[in-house]
């Protein structure tokens, strides 16, 4: 137990909003190359890509957050995480620095927040001049097994 019980986040920007993802959730940060589109896949799946010989499923965070799609040529980065034996890459606009924040600035998500966001956030940190929304990446990549047609 450290005396300085701080929360460590990798900060990212999506659609202009600052988000934080708990460091221990992220395996790596990388620049996604050559994403293969998957036809008929759920909307949030941007496609598949090859990361050092392993196939990674790219999930578009903007889609999940209900934000407009990224413009062609706009910068994009990926947060790599592992779930079970599957690799996922969460697509964001930019990746910033790692921040360590005091837990006392963390608050629960506001009640009037868009439900789409509410399920994806773990809370909000009050920073000096902006808010950092804590992103629940596990919730972001979660999927429901759809009912299959016979």
């Amino acid at each position: 137990m450290s005396t300085e019980d701080r929360c460590e986040y990798v900060t990212v920007k999506i659609g202009g909003q600052l988000f934080g993802v708990e460091v221990h959730e992220i395996r790596e940060v990388f620049s996604p190359q050559d994403i293969t589109r998957v036809p008929r896949a759920p909307g949030e799946i941007a496609g598949l890509l090859n990361l050092r010989g392993r196939i990674v499923t790219a999930v578009e965070a903007r889609f999940k957050l209900g934000l407009p799609p990224r413009e062609d040529g706009a910068p994009v980065m990926a947060l790599g995480l592992e779930q079970g034996s599957e690799l996922f890459g969460v697509l964001v606009d930019e990746v910033g620095e790692v921040m360590r924040l005091k837990p006392d600035t963390l608050e629960a998500s506001p009640a009037h927040l868009d439900p789409k966001w509410r399920v994806l956030l773990k809370g909000v940190h009050r920073l000096d001049n902006q808010l950092l929304a804590v992103l629940d990446v596990r919730a972001l990549i979660a999927w429901r097994a759809a009912g299959l047609a016979a």
Binding site: P39, R40, A41, P42, I45, T57, W143, A145, A146, A149
Partner: peptide, 18 residues
């Protein structure tokens, strides 16, 4: 390579490969 969770419901694909 098997498809990851969210893609498994696409019945026309059985997997992916490099």
């Amino acid at each position: 390579k098997p498809l990851s969770g969210p893609l498994r419901s696409t019945t026309v694909f059985s997997g992916a490969t490099i």
